[in-house]
Amino acid sequence: MRSFRWIMLTVAVIIFDAAASDASAWGKAVAIPLVEGFAALWRGEYQAAANRLHGARYIANAFGGSHAQRDIIDWTLAEAIANERLALKPHSFVNRSFLSRAGAVALAGLRDA
C-alpha cells in the first residue's frame, strides 16, 4: 500500500503547490479519481472503484497517452462491475460467465500485444 500513498502524496503536492495551475486543475479532475478508483479495486472495494472510474472515464482524454493506456480505465471499470455483481450473486451462472469471458479477452489481448 506504500505505493498508493506515495502516488496520492505526489498528486497532492502537485495540486496544492500550484493551486491555480493547469496541473492543479488536472490533478483534481483526473488524477485523483483515477488513483482512488484503481486503489479501491486493488482493495476489493468494487463499488467504490466503479464509482470513481466511471466518472473519470469521460475525462480520460485529458491526460493524453495512447488508446491502450486509456483502455485500461474501461477494462478496470468492467472488472470492478463484474466483481461487484459476482459478490452480490456469487452463484449466478451469468455473472461467472461474464467474468470468465472478460478475463479470456484480456489475456488474448496481452498475448497479441
Rank of each mutant, 00 (worst) to 15 (best):
R96Q: 15
I81C: 12
I73W: 02
L53G: 02
F98T: 13
G55Q: 06
A39F: 03
G65H: 01
F38G: 07
V35P: 02
I59R: 13
Q47T: 06
Q69E: 15
R70A: 00
W42M: 14
E45T: 03
A48R: 10
G44K: 09
I81N: 06
G44C: 10
L99Q: 12
Q47Y: 04
H67S: 10
Y58F: 14
H91R: 13
L41D: 08
S66Q: 03
E79D: 13
G37L: 05
R52F: 04
N51S: 10
R85E: 14
F38N: 08
R52D: 07
A80Q: 05
T76Y: 00
V94C: 02
A62R: 13
G44I: 05
A68V: 00
I73F: 04
G55M: 05
I72A: 06
N95V: 14
L41V: 05
E45H: 11
H67Y: 07
G55R: 08
R96G: 03
G64R: 00
W42T: 14
H91K: 13
L77C: 10
H91L: 13
A68E: 00
G37P: 06
R85D: 12
S92P: 10
F38K: 08
R70I: 00
H54I: 04
I73V: 15
D71Q: 06
H67W: 06
A78T: 15
L88N: 08
E45R: 11
L53K: 03
R85H: 11
E84G: 14
H91P: 00
R57V: 00
A78W: 10
L53T: 08
N61M: 10
A50E: 13
I73E: 04
F63R: 11
S66Y: 02
E36R: 07
W42R: 15
T76Q: 13
F63A: 04
H54Q: 12
L77M: 13
N61R: 15
E36K: 09
S66V: 01
R70H: 01
K89G: 02
A87D: 10
W75Q: 14
G37M: 05
G55C: 07
L53D: 03
R96K: 15
D71A: 03
A56N: 07
Y58A: 13
W75S: 12
D74M: 10
H67M: 05
A68P: 00
N83S: 11
F98K: 10
I59D: 05
A82W: 04
R70Q: 13
I59C: 02
F38L: 12
I81R: 14
H67L: 10
Y58D: 11
L86E: 08
R70Y: 00
Y58W: 12
E36A: 11
R52P: 01
E84I: 01
